[in-house]
Every structure is written in structure tokens, then in C-alpha cells.
Amino acid sequence: MLSPFFLEEPTTVAEASSLLARHGESAKILAGGTELLLVLKERLATFERLVHIKGIPGLAGISLENGKSELRIGALCTHRALEKDPLIRSRFPLIAEAERQIANVRVRASGTLGGNLCFAEPHADPGTFLLALGARLVLQSARGSRTLGVSDFFVDYFETVLEPDEIMTEIRVPPLSESAGWSYHRYALLERPSVAVCVLLEPDPGGRHIRSGAISLGCVAPTPVRATEAEKKLVGMALSEVGRHALEIGREAAKAGEPLDDLYGSADYKRELVAVFVKRGLVQAAARMEGAKR
């Protein structure tokens, strides 16, 4: 049973922010509730007041902006909306593919992207692929607004830079070129992922070599992390060479994590999974690039 709380239903971001500022620690934003209601049920925290933001118009859209190339996702978009959206499926298939694998149908129908990021549960998916994609997160309050990269947003386990009166309003994703190669691999032993790996490769103009590569790892550190040393090894590599080096790059990437022994698996096991997922991811991403050339 949930303990009683007072419900606020603001209709603007400014109003929601003022309510949060006024009530401080005793108030909390409620979006899809898939995390917050469990926290309340488990009595891990109690709040006198929940500020329900789903009634605020304009926070659940999906559109292309800035010359029709940048993807704008409203923070209240559900995982299901992202999985099914035709625009995302055609222009950002990586997002649709990753979203499809999150949780179960019911959590996907209720849980929002903003709620996922703001809760900062380390065993999660979106932070990982948004980090590889170079997404920017827009935080708004009655005081103004700021835009941050994913790595500047997450601080620690369950901790972000979000101020108590700030609301995440949108997630902006730079264009994903059609010639890019991508992959998303995750393994979930329990409900949430044990390990998640996202690979994104950009070709050079000739299309036969890698201009740059992003490898991001989820669930193996307090926040999603980029495997920068491994990424360096990809620069200039011929696509035909990727398969031969994939495992070695995977092993390098695994060093970027600091996994813990926990219910989701031992630290050694997770490191091994990272290496294998990076290997598979590189091969798959390179194959997609070869496919895109034709």
C-alpha cells in the first residue's frame, strides 16, 4: 500500500518548478511512476507532495528540428512511444531497437524517457545509447533553462546535477547519418540490464574506413561511460579489418568500466560481457556500414 500524498497537477513547467521550489525536499516529480511508486512502496523515501507533470502540454512530442536533422524528444515520451514512432524507426533505428528491449510491455507503456534519466539508476538503457549518440538534455526551471551533455548530467549512482526545482523537458539527439554503423547489445538476467553496450561508427568520406567511433558502456560504473581508449584504436581503421581487431578492442573497452559484484553478476563476468558485446557490436556496426554503402 502506498502512503498518502497530496497531488499537485501543474499545467506549465514554470508552475511545476515553483511548486518544487516552494516545497523543497517534501515534494517530488511524478511522471510515469514506474520508479517512484516502487520507491514509495518500499518506503525507501516518502514525499508529502507529488507533482504530476503529465498534464503539462508539449512535453511528449517527437519531432525533427534545426533544419530537420536534430531529433527532439519530449521528456514525457514513453519507452513505447519511442519504440513505435515511425520517425525514430526510420531515422534513428538505434533508439527504436534499444527501446524495444527495455523492461516489459507494461513498464514501456508507462515509463518515460525523462523519468528514466532523472532517476539515474545505473542498471538502465537510455543513458548508454544517448551517451554514444551525443544527446543533449534540456533542464528547465522557473529561473531559466540549461542544456547539458549526458556525461555532464549523471553524477553517481542515482545522482544527477538536476536541481530540486528543475524539470527535464526534452532530449535532443544530433542526426544519425545513414552511412553510420550502430549496434546495441544488452543482457538482462533480472528485469533490468546487467550490462549494456552501444557502438556507433562514422565512416570517412570514402566509406571504407572509420572516421570516428563511439563505444558507450552501461551498468558497469555509477554512470554510463565512454570507452575512450578503445575508441582511439578505431580511428582510421579499414572496415575490412574490424572483425580481426574486435575482441582486442572489446578487452580494451572493458577496462573503462568499474563493475561491482552484485545480484546482476560478478564483476569479472560483467567485464567479460563488455568485451564480447563490444566485439559483436563492432562487427555488426561495420556490417551495417558495408550494407549502407550499397
Partner: peptide
């Protein structure tokens, strides 16, 4: 859409 009524307000 399917939802968990246990955790829906």
C-alpha cells in the same frame, strides 16, 4: 495498452 494496475495510480 497493457499496464500494471498494481503500480498505476
Amino acid at each position: 495498452l497493457p499496464v500494471s494496475s498494481c503500480t498505476s495510480l
